[in-house]
Design a protein around this nucleic acid. Sequence first.
DNA 1: GTGGTCTAGACCACA
DNA 2: GTGGTCTAGACCACT
Lengths: 142, 142, 142, 142
Amino acid sequence: MNVGVSESSMADKSKTINIALDPTSGIPFYRQIILQIEMAMADGRLKPGNQLPTVRGLAVELRVNPNTVARAYNELEIRGLVSSQHGTGTFISDREVEMSEVEREEVLSQLVRGFVSQAASYGFTVDDIIRYLTDYHEEGRK
Amino acid sequence: MNVGVSESSMADKSKTINIALDPTSGIPFYRQIILQIEMAMADGRLKPGNQLPTVRGLAVELRVNPNTVARAYNELEIRGLVSSQHGTGTFISDREVEMSEVEREEVLSQLVRGFVSQAASYGFTVDDIIRYLTDYHEEGRK
Amino acid sequence: MNVGVSESSMADKSKTINIALDPTSGIPFYRQIILQIEMAMADGRLKPGNQLPTVRGLAVELRVNPNTVARAYNELEIRGLVSSQHGTGTFISDREVEMSEVEREEVLSQLVRGFVSQAASYGFTVDDIIRYLTDYHEEGRK
Amino acid sequence: MNVGVSESSMADKSKTINIALDPTSGIPFYRQIILQIEMAMADGRLKPGNQLPTVRGLAVELRVNPNTVARAYNELEIRGLVSSQHGTGTFISDREVEMSEVEREEVLSQLVRGFVSQAASYGFTVDDIIRYLTDYHEEGRK
DNA sequence: GTGGTCTAGACCACA
DNA sequence: GTGGTCTAGACCACT
């Protein structure tokens, strides 16, 4: 029974997601953390099972109070996006997407339509959105 | 309950700008109102001389506290973008609003990022969104 | 326009729900608060639109730190059970139960079956549960 | 990977007690294990002399860290409810477990209250639950 | 006055 | 070592 060697072979242990806080944005730190983790999930940088940085670790990295990171993780857990395991760490949840393709499409449709009308009230067109989204996505891939 | 001057006599003089508030966006209502009026001015939906909805009228329409609308109008007046004329209404000033591309991009950025992370919490990826949005767009063109 | 009299006629303003914390239970304070509010909703003592006690008010009453109450309210808000309005208060959400009777029954069925099997693993029968639940409910009505 | 004594040679000697862990209950896993074993002893599903599953076996079955199971067994041994015999297994002690009505009621209380508040968050009332549970029960009797 | 955010620091529980 | 809870107290934002 090999102990030690086998323990250390966890290259994929905790993903680095390069969270950056902008203190001038007016968006609370804990919310910026949530947003960035959600976005990392949306574009595939974080997948189910991946471990997030530890609360204290991320707090040190971002130079914020551990409570602030804990609050972000806590909210993500309440929403079911991550699962914290005492003494072990915090992990991206296995999404139990029991939705059929049809249902998924329906939910996506609702979300997008709502967003389009919101953006429209600011004077943005669907074209604006698509353009930004595509650029944004390319950016993330570099 | 009619109080004071009838508001309905100027119904056709005040532009409807379709302000939509999103209580889940984290952006305070008064700021959402300001932003949307600014954007409407920037892209020509509101022109100098146009009358804004009355404070009370808009408050009822948006189902918020009249103070909230008043605060938005007040801040717009301080910035010189609108001018309130006692007993008459609130009007778009001559002073032009030039919203730079950069500013527009910033607002769009915030909106899109917020939406992406909301969609992520339902398990949708950026790709899903782009795909749907493009289809949706094509659909609209037919 | 009557001001003052009409403002003060808010007898039902904020519901008293008599939350009691048990420091010996091992259940964290914030969770006890959540549980008791949820139960008040379940047996009809709190209805949509009712205002909860203020964060500071409840904190004083329960002799805990305001942050502890805020945390409970916050979690309830994330779950969509209450809605906090800045500068105004915290209110029980209007549940948008768009579910058909059939769907409701389905969800209830899943919940109950899950619970029954959980209780069974502790050696309790459905009879035990019904008996306790009925007693508990009568208790609440006194 | 076979290490040490084969566990399968005593498969039919160790009682299956169907322990079910609920990660959302807030009760730590090790405590859920203890509670369920105690209840099984109290209502006769486990009798003196019966062998418990091996630590590793149960850990695999429940998909938890073996330390967690070990901790539960350890605590049960300290209380004298089970005795571990090196190289052989863990067995229910002669010492009787009398779980008083009061204790049983307490556990039931916790379970039910937790369930009621969970159901409340889906908009179900205590009445809904009682009604469904009674129907469900009748159903089962047919 | 309402709720919201953040810090600093202590102590506990789980693995 | 991990995450979880709670306090005390400061300061901000909305009504």
